[in-house]
Each structure stands twice: as structure tokens, then as C-alpha cells.
Design a protein around this nucleic acid. Structure first.
Lengths: 258, 258
DNA sequence: CGTGATAAG
DNA sequence: CTTAACACG
């Protein structure tokens, strides 16, 4: 079962840049999209029909602000996932942040984690979100469920996960607070799958600023992640960063489960 | 002496679409631009230097709102025009509407006349502007000066001056009020030069909506005009609409004076 | 630097 | 439909 996650920075934008071609090649069984920045009705009708023919779709745009944030989860129809938009917490759900997809004892919890923003003005919001999410993961574990958490987490877990750690100690996405909250996910029993499989390997990034050729020079951040319950690790076949896939300032990441 | 007027709908935009090439071919002696929508400092430095090498330039952007309206007048340096931004009436001058260029007994009064706007919300403003301008023209005439008035006047003088007069009797640019105010310019002693030279000729337009191929089908309006003092008419060599010149939703117009 | 909303035309 | 400002990332 191939899981993908991609912050598309505007679904209508990435559609113009070959998203459907990518989809045909990647063949995800489960796909989380972030920053869809559109209502489902605003998406090209042909695309909608094509996607609906193969996938169960939970399209979850922000209610709070048009064209802002939002996420979607698509699961291959035959897999029979149950899709639930939101965490049941209005502040996050109004921004279309997280979607649950459940199938048996597996919960796929994916979406667009808040950005701490310029001046860290949304750091408190982001921290509350992370802490609420860690509690939810712990609750799933307590109930005997496995969790696969994915998305644009807007935090680089460690120094290895961004090209310029020293320059970004106070930047949104690398503050001590954000990294501490990330540790909270691990404390809840999750594992950063890609880092687990590539300990010590630098240069593995999933986001590059659009300014000044950062992507060509691979001056990036690894902020798009798959975190898996420890009990799920033996089922992980593969975890990848598809840095060659263009169309957004983020690239897709994937994880394969038996 | 070749006078040109062109609503460029964003000077930086038209620069990308070959404005400088057009300038080299057209060789205006005097050029009024409307809807420059930029500060002079925002214009490409090479372009600024090139223009400054040949022209005296009065760049008159709106103070009231960034990227809105504004006009400019460029006169060939050797002609020795005196350039004065504004009419001395704050409400108009804050929007960078009109520039005077004087040389001997000739006053070139050009710029971007207000648009009555959706719902005619600015019709009162536009009427006040037109009436103040007519008074100014009359004053110049009383003082023995000739006036050449030009620009995007945002009014089609008569039924012949737009493709769909019946459909636009209540539209901004063709209301009875706007046409009455246009008559005020004629009452002040000005003549619509192009119409004077082509009485009864339809299809002479200078603006076409960007929506739905209006320009290809020549469904347009003649709202960019040269009006000349009666005493100036014997010096008029030529008056043209350059409908083939692209780059804006308006095309340039010109008038040649001996 | 790019996406999308918005105001204005 | 297009320009430009703006918010956000």
C-alpha cells in the first residue's frame, strides 16, 4: 500500500503543472494533499471526475479564509478507508488542517500543520495544535490502533534536516519550541521513518524556498514527514523523498506499507 | 510636432510588451501616458535612463492609492515645454490625473479622466472634474492661449463612438450626464479632431474590453481623444487611431501639428 | 518568489 | 479578462 503526501501550494496551480501525469506514474493508494487552496467545486470538472472514479475523496478546504491552507485525503476506493475531516477542534478544523482515514486498526492522520509564521506570531497556535495531536496519537495507541501520521509538519526535526541550521535557530520551523513539540510526537510512540532509515544522512529535503535558486542548490528543509507507530515499522517497505518532482515549493514524499 | 496619447494599463506591463520598440517607431515629440500605475522609481532603470536622455518627463502617479491610475507627459527635450503636474485641485491631483505642458501660447492638457465606475458611484466626481476642466479651458482661451486636450476621457461622445450604443445607455462612459459634460468641452471652444475629420465614420475605437475577443471583433469604444482649440485646427496635419498597436486594452492615438 | 483573493477598470 | 497590491508562506 503506497502512501503519498504532498504540499501542492495550490491544487489548481499544480494541476497546470502536470499533477495528473504525476498521479498516473506515482499510483498512490493513499494520498494526502496540503495547501489545496481551493474548494472542490473550483477544481476542473474533468479532473474531479477522473479522481472520483478511482478514489474516495475527503476535500477539506479552510472555512476561515478563502484560498488559504486546506488539505485533502484520497484513498483508493477498493481499500474501503473511512474518511473523517477534522480533529473535532474548531480552531484547526476551520483551517482544513487534518483528516483521519481509518481502516481496521490503522489510522492515517494527515494534513497541513500550522506554520509559526513571521515573527512567530502563530507559535502558540502551532504548539497547541502539536500538543493536541500528540494526545490524539496517544489515545489511538491506548486503544490498540496503529497510527501513520503524515503531512507538511512545518518543522525540521533536527540539525540534519535543514541546510542552514545555524542561520535558522530563531526561524519559524526550527525554534526550540517547535522541535520540542516534535519530540512530543515521538514520545507518543511515533517514529520518523525516513530518518530512522537514513540516520546521519544530510541533504534530504522536501521544501525549498522559491527565492533565489535554493532548490537547484538543494538549500532546503525536511518538513514533510511520515511518522509511524513503532508497531508499524516492520510493515514499512520503503520511504522516499521525491525531490525530482516539480510543481510546488514542496516535493512529494512516500511510504510503502505491506 | 507629433503628439501621442496612450492609456497603457500599467507602464511596467506595457514595457514587457514592447513599449520601447513602439516608441522608437512612433517617435512622439509629445507623449501622454495614462494609467501608469507605478512610481518612476519602480520603472526599470535602463528604460528610465533611455527616456530621460531624450525627453523632459513629468511622472505623476496617484498619491492616494498605490498602483492606481496616474499619468505622465513626456516632451522632447529640445522643444522646451514647461511641464506642470496637476490642476491645483487636490481631489484630482491626488490621483495623478492631469498634467499641463506649456510652450508659448500652446497648452497641452492631458491625462486620465475619471471613470464613472460600476454603479456610476464616481459619476459625481467625474462630473465635477469635467466641469472644472471645461472652466480651465475657457480660462486659457480667455487668456489667448490655444489648448490641445488629450487622454483617456472615459466617455464616448456619441452613438458612432461605440459599437453597442443601445446596450450602453446606462453604462459608465455613455450616460447622458457624461455626454452632456463632454459637450461642455466643445462649448468651451474645443473640437473633437478625429470626428471632425471623419464625420459619420463608424468603427473608430481606441478601447476594447479584455473579455471575450472584443478587440478581434472590433467591439470597442472611442474614449481616447484629442480635442483642439478651434484656432488650432488649421495647424492639424493628421489625426489617427493606432488600433494595430497592442500591449494594452487601449491603443495609442496621435495628432500631428505643424 | 509564487499562489490566490481583491479592487479597479 | 488583466493589472497591481496584498496576505501568506
Amino acid at each position: 500500500m503506497k502512501f503519498f503526501s504532498w504540499n501542492v501550494n495550490g491544487f489548481r496551480s499544480v494541476l497546470k503543472k502536470g499533477f495528473m501525469d504525476w498521479l498516473e506514474v506515482a499510483e498512490p493508494d493513499v494520498l494526502s494533499l496540503q495547501e489545496i487552496r481551493s474548494e472542490w467545486e473550483e477544481v476542473d470538472l474533468g479532473v474531479r471526475r477522473q479522481l472520483e472514479s478511482a478514489y474516495d475523496i475527503c476535500w477539506f478546504p479552510a472555512r476561515s479564509k478563502k484560498g488559504y491552507a486546506g488539505s485533502a485525503t484520497l484513498t483508493r476506493r477498493e481499500l474501503g478507508f473511512t474518511l473523517t475531516p477534522g480533529l473535532g477542534i474548531e480552531a484547526y478544523d476551520a483551517e482544513g488542517r487534518m483528516i483521519s482515514a481509518q481502516r481496521g486498526e490503522l489510522v492515517f492522520l494527515a494534513g497541513y500543520f500550522p506554520n509559526a509564521s513571521q515573527g512567530l506570531v502563530r507559535l502558540p497556535f502551532k504548539r497547541a495544535f502539536a500538543q493536541d495531536l500528540a494526545k490524539l496519537v496517544a489515545a489511538h495507541h491506548a486503544a490498540g490502533r496503529h497510527v501513520l501520521m503524515a503531512g507538511d509538519m512545518n518543522v525540521a526535526p533536527g540539525e540534519l534536516d535543514l541546510a542552514r541550521p545555524k542561520d535558522n535557530l530563531l526561524s519559524p520551523g526550527f525554534t526550540v519550541e517547535e522541535r520540542a513539540d516534535f519530540q512530543g510526537y515521538l514520545a507518543a510512540g511515533l517514529v520518523d521513518v525516513l530518518r530512522e532509515r537514513h540516520p546521519g544522512e544530510p541533504g534530504l529535503y522536501s521544501w525549498w524556498t522559491a527565492r533565489g535558486g535554493a532548490r537547484e542548490r538543494n538549500v532546503g528543509w525536511r518538513i514533510d514527514l511520515f511518522l509511524a507507530s513503532q508497531g508499524l515499522l516492520e510493515r514499512v517497505q520503503d520511504a522516499q523523498i521525491h525531490a525530482n518532482v516539480l510543481g510546488s515549493d514542496h516535493c512529494p514524499i512516500s511510504l510503502e506499507l505491506t
